[in-house]
């Protein structure tokens, strides 16, 4: 696991120069959410809060927000108050730099830090029902807000690493993320339209999954598709890539909880 990871960090600049063909970033005004490529039915499902199945998890998340947890006996709401005001825009600016971790953390990690440090509760597992529900509830408070990655110089090296990973060929198919999502978006891959890959609506309700899933689950999906070795949930490599993807989608509107086929 750490072998290929370490290789990617040191070898990325060399490989970049040698292997990436076009690798041009999509012009800001040409960017589109995968929402635009969905069928009318799927769009209607996402648009109506009483037919969007992601909203079922949001209801669970709302209950978790108000539920007391851990040795502190405090709920999220006891410190943060109503999520509508306090969590507005929060998902739109994650991953953000965490001074104690010395690196960027994503929304899920931020929630778990809060649980452990302030609620003195056990952290939620990645992709657990609770984590998905609470992160969906928090992220939904940013719905309609533009994605706004923090302008923080401390994030720069991690952003660069995320970009390098995005453009690095990997796996048995020897593909980079950019070869599909920068160079060939809008074309077909096995009957599906290749999306630009903007993380506008996570956690998403994916019909194929019959459930909610995080951005890291989606990234694993792509890596398995490239026959590359995927990282463990919460791995720094994933968070760096999330950081780059959010930067790449800067200014686009948050759609959480989005529905995708």
């Amino acid at each position: 696991m750490s072998g290929p990871a370490r290789l990617s960090i040191f070898a990325a600049p060399l490989l970049l120069a040698a292997l990436v063909s076009a690798g041009a970033e999509i012009a800001l005004n040409e960017r589109r959410s995968a929402y635009d490529d969905m069928s009318r039915d799927n769009k209607a499902m996402q648009d109506d809060d009483t037919s969007n199945p992601g909203m079922l998890a949001v209801l669970d998340g709302e209950a978790l927000w108000a539920a007391k947890a851990g040795a502190s006996g405090k709920s999220c709401a006891d410190c943060h108050g109503g999520a509508k005001a306090s969590m507005k825009g929060v998902a739109a600016r994650h991953p953000s730099f965490d001074a104690s971790a010395g690196r960027p953390v994503n929304l899920e990690q931020r929630i778990n830090t809060s649980r452990v440090q302030h609620q003195q509760a056990s952290p939620f597992a990645y992709e657990s029902k609770e984590m998905l529900a609470l992160s969906a509830y928090v992220a939904m408070q940013s719905r309609g807000e533009p994605i706004a990655p923090p302008d923080d110089p401390r994030l720069k090296p991690f952003l660069d690493r995320g970009r390098a990973q995005f453009n690095q060929r990997q796996g048995q198919l020897n593909l980079s993320c950019g070869q599909c999502h920068d160079d060939n978006w809008g074309k077909s891959l096995a009957g599906n339209t290749v999306p630009q890959g903007h993380p506008t609506g996570y956690p998403i309700y994916r019909l194929e999954w019959q459930g909610l899933g995080s951005l890291q689950r989606r990234l694993r999906n792509c890596m398995i598709g490239m026959r590359a070795e995927s990282y463990a949930y919460g791995a720094p490599e994933y968070v760096d890539m999330e950081l780059y993807l959010m930067w790449r989608a800067r200014g686009m509107k948050v759609e959480t909880p989005a529905v995708r086929p």
Binding site: D48, T50, S51, P53, A57, Q210
Partner: peptide, 9 residues
């Protein structure tokens, strides 16, 4: 009338 319920099925 539209109804949605959470269930693993």
């Amino acid at each position: 009338i539209k109804t949605l319920i959470s269930h693993v099925m």
